[in-house]
């Protein structure tokens, strides 16, 4: 019951809020970029910019801090797995065979470690503290709690499952307001970056 409520109320709210966000973004005028004789091909640059997420060698920052990239990948993989888990537990629990359960547990545990490292770094490094607002800490703490309760739920602990779906519900509603919304803007920001610098022949 709770799991169904979480998704059937939380998900439409999330979708509606994100739609609103996108409407606000798309109602803004696009910056004019009409310089003649572009030096590069727009499609190539934008595709390139969009796939950077799976090509860390293309970015000097992720080349240099490759452990941070691994951490990013593990953390986000865990978050996606945890979100998927909430749907599977609610609507298709039969999909969770023993081996699938084990695999998801490993992913969630690794993601918890990666998220913990992120929180530690944010709280401990002066250059991270100066750029952090309460939202930066609470959003991350909330994701960690979500991962933790997901893990407990997978381990079959009853109160953990209840907590998991309560957190999932809160998460769905909180997300569009918090920094967690960044992924909605990711394709736009990368596209704009790619389009601008592809025309100039800087990226291809």
């Amino acid at each position: 019951m709770l799991q169904h409520l979480t998704h059937e109320i939380g998900t439409p709210i999330l979708v509606l809020l994100y739609l609103l966000r996108l409407i606000v973004l798309l109602r803004r005028r696009p910056a004019r970029d009409i310089a003649s004789n572009p030096k590069g091909e727009l499609w190539r640059g934008t595709v390139n910019a969009l796939i950077t997420i799976v090509a860390p060698w293309k970015l000097a920052s992720t080349r240099k801090h490759w452990t941070r990239y691994v951490e990013f990948a593990v953390f986000h993989l865990g978050v996606f797995a945890n979100i998927a888990l909430s749907f599977v537990l609610a609507y298709a629990p039969g999909l969770l065979s023993v081996s699938v359960r084990r695999l998801v547990l490993v992913v969630l545990a690794a993601s918890l470690v990666a998220g913990g490292l992120r929180l530690y770094r944010r709280a401990n490094r002066p250059e991270m503290r100066v750029i952090s607002s309460p939202d930066d800490y609470i959003a991350l703490a909330m994701v960690l709690l979500f991962l933790l309760t997901g893990t407990m739920s997978l381990l079959g602990w009853g109160p953990g499952t209840i907590a998991y779906f309560v957190i999932a519900g809160l998460f769905l509603v909180y997300e569009p307001f918090s920094k967690i919304r960044h992924y909605i803007y990711y394709p736009f920001a990368r596209y704009f970056f790619g389009a601008t610098f592809a025309r100039r022949g800087v990226i291809d």
């Binding site: 966000r21 606000v24 973004l25 798309l26 803004r28 005028r29 696009p30 910056a31 944010r122 991270m128 750029i131 952090s132 607002s133 930066d136 920094k179 919304r181 960044h182 909605i184 803007y185 990711y186 736009f188 920001a189 704009f192 601008t196």
Partner: peptide, 13 residues
């Protein structure tokens, strides 16, 4: 613009 708005939102710090 759309570009500036996206840059305002997308930063994850």
């Amino acid at each position: 613009t759309r570009q500036l708005e996206a840059s305002m939102h997308a930063c994850t710090h």
